[in-house]
Design a binder for these strands. Structure first.
Lengths: 199, 199
DNA sequence: GAATGATGTTACCGATCAGTAACATCGCTT
DNA sequence: AAGCGATGTTACTGATCGGTAACATCATTC
């Protein structure tokens, strides 16, 4: 039995990939505390010992989960921005147009970082440190775009848009249906950007 | 020993009050899943059996926790509004001025409803139903004030302010320090209200 | 003062959690 | 073919979870 017969030894670093995929989906959908390692290995189709031979602990998986979410987040943001390579104002606007669409699809669970921060309340917890870092970078990126767009007070516009972005994420989870407020998102962004650019 | 000597039988419905106070503080500070009933009874200074003779389950405590948070929330909102009995625009503005102050004090843990929604991901869970109801009422109240203020599109203003409020709550937990964005909150509210009232 | 009902105390249940020891089994190298 | 390291499998640990049974103790009423 050396050909394509059913064999059980298939994993290598592939187990690692499967585990990360499973953790990705389950942590985001059900929360980190609510998902046990048994659920993860079951979803990944690997053995529990394979998990602990690839990762030292559940926290290690959580750390990787954050990194993936971070990458995905920036990919989405930069994709919106890239639609307007030489129009920073339009790029800023595009972020909120796209977000309004993403946030109302069924099964959407909001900002993974905010969800993580809600689960780990200790400010010194490494998850909260990572989240704070992500938000700092986001604010910096918004300010950068605001500057490029020619805002008279780039930081003020960035802060306003940051608040709006957090609000859109949070509202997608607290309002039912989320459309009740999210339909207004692109227009609010337009107003804030418009106000900051006039003069 | 009938006078004011130390005795251990003091509880009646008072145990109930002590338990609710303890649940209030611990649930908000550490999260619901993270707080066990043992921690609650210890903080309340009562016996575990006293808990289960007053409440049928932990979920029952959670339900009461929500009701308290709901009452406290509306008290804060209406107190802001009441500062301007015959000026709805100023009342709306006041909500955000006050919130900006509340949200930056140390130990602030953001919107208890959003935190609850983050912990219980199942949309049909009773906690999420309660949260959605709270948010619906909030949006309605904002729209009411927007109408009184003379906004040409009261719902649009209410939606914008609702997004902003959610954003302020969320940012208080995801940004470190939260002041990095929350200092802009009153000004953003002023801009949105101003835009909606001109014409 | 005896009975009654509410309370305090302890010890426990079954379930679930993250993490591990021990051993069988595989693929690969020599 | 022998050996070796990585993997799969099972069974387990100790801790913690929400919740409860059993019994001692108290205040009150008759």
């Amino acid at each position: 039995m050396s050909a394509t017969t059913t064999r059980r030894v298939t994993e290598g670093p592939e187990a690692s990939a499967r585990l990360l995929d499973a953790a990705d989906e389950l942590f985001y959908r059900d929360g980190i505390r609510a998902v046990g390692v048994d659920a993860i290995v079951k979803q990944a189709g690997v053995n529990k010992m394979s998990l602990y031979r690839q990762f030292s602990s559940k926290d290690e998986l959580v750390r990787h989960y954050f990194l993936r979410a971070d990458t995905r987040f920036w990919t989405a943001i930069e994709r919106s921005i890239a639609k307007h390579p030489d129009n920073a104002a339009a790029a800023l606007q595009q972020i909120y147009t796209d977000l309004a669409q993403r946030a109302v699809v069924a099964g959407y669970r909001g900002c993974p970082f905010v969800n993580m921060a809600a689960e780990f309340t200790e400010p010194s917890h490494f998850v909260r440190q990572l989240v704070a870092q992500n938000k700092r970078q986001l604010l910096a990126r918004l300010e950068e775009l605001a500057t490029q767009a020619g805002a008279s007070q780039p930081l003020a516009l960035a802060q306003a848009l940051a608040l709006l972005l957090e609000g859109a994420y949070a509202a997608s989870q607290s309002y039912d249906p989320p459309d009740a407020v999210l339909t207004a998102l692109p227009e609010v962004a337009r107003q804030l950007i418009g106000l900051a650019l006039q003069h």
